[in-house]
């Protein structure tokens, strides 16, 4: 038995190693390693102190600009954005799903490319564009999440459609059902649990997105966070960080629980 690797096998790994090393040398060359500000340690300690001694008075004071109200707005942005994108994604998904096994499927290819393009458009840029259209505030955030999420939800939905069990559709068709009846009785009930599950998953991501959109002026908890960081109000930064962590953890576990019940 010949256990020796062929020459190419051995050379292949050397080439890969050289490429990887070159890649890292190149990467390091682009990042100036020295530029860390002198007060870094001091600021980290201050932020840490802020987290340990948060500004509890900011949690709720009934003014409508306290943390709880901002968190509610953040959740509302994520919720509405996700609903909008889920509705928009359904037609997109049927458009992009490759349901016939032929060599060329221009419709599906175009649909998939569109979805990739939407995904590549950064959410923050969308938010800024919508701010210019509808003014700064939560509504711009809703629209940004609503449009951006279509990229991911549309892809997940179309994959669900591609992998669904078609026998129910065939049965209704054999019974002489119309297209609408096939869709309503066979297709929808088949894929609905999966679509809802993906939408819940996307909602988790949208909550995180909504909490940062405020950094660029699109409403939610990000706006007070930015002010607190700029004014070096560390105890406020601390309570907002704690608030975001608590909100995200709560939403994640609720969504995970619901998704477990669904499937």
């Amino acid at each position: 038995m010949n256990l020796k690797k062929s020459k190419f096998e051995r050379v292949k790994w050397i080439i890969a190693a050289v490429v990887i090393i070159a890649l890292y040398v190149w990467s390091f060359s682009g990042i100036p390693l020295t530029k860390i500000q002198g007060s870094a340690g001091q600021v980290s300690v201050s932020i840490f102190n802020g987290i340990i001694h948060p500004d509890w008075a900011y949690v709720y004071n009934g003014s409508g600009e306290d943390m709880v109200s901002e968190l509610v707005i953040t959740l509302a942005i994520a919720f509405l954005g996700t609903i909008i994108s889920a509705v928009l994604s359904v037609p997109f998904a049927f458009f992009a799903a490759q349901t016939k096994n032929s060599m060329f499927h221009p419709r599906s290819t175009i649909g998939k490319f569109l979805l990739t393009a939407i995904r590549a458009f950064p959410e923050v840029v969308l938010a800024i564009m919508f701010i210019k259209a509808v003014g700064p505030g939560s509504f711009a955030g809703v629209l940004a999440i609503g449009v951006h999420s279509v990229g991911m939800l549309g892809k997940l939905f179309s994959e669900a459609i591609e992998e669904m069990d078609r026998s129910a559709e065939v049965a209704i068709e054999a019974d002489g059902g119309t297209k609408w009846q096939i869709f309503r009785i066979a297709t929808m009930p088949q894929i609905l649990p999966e679509l809802v599950s993906y939408t819940l998953y996307r909602f988790e991501i949208s909550v995180r997105s909504a909490s940062i959109l405020g950094l660029v002026g699109a409403g939610g908890i990000g706006t007070p966070m930015m002010f607190a960081l700029q004014t070096r109000d560390w105890s406020k930064t601390g309570i907002i960080l704690l608030g975001i962590v608590a909100m995200v953890l709560a939403i994640d576990s609720l969504s995970t629980y619901l998704r477990r019940k669904l499937i």
Binding site: A40, L229, L241
Partner: peptide, 16 residues
Amino acid sequence: TLPNLLLAALFVAIFG
């Protein structure tokens, strides 16, 4: 739980 732009905002405050 922390989204990366939020981390970036924090780290810009810390590291410049």
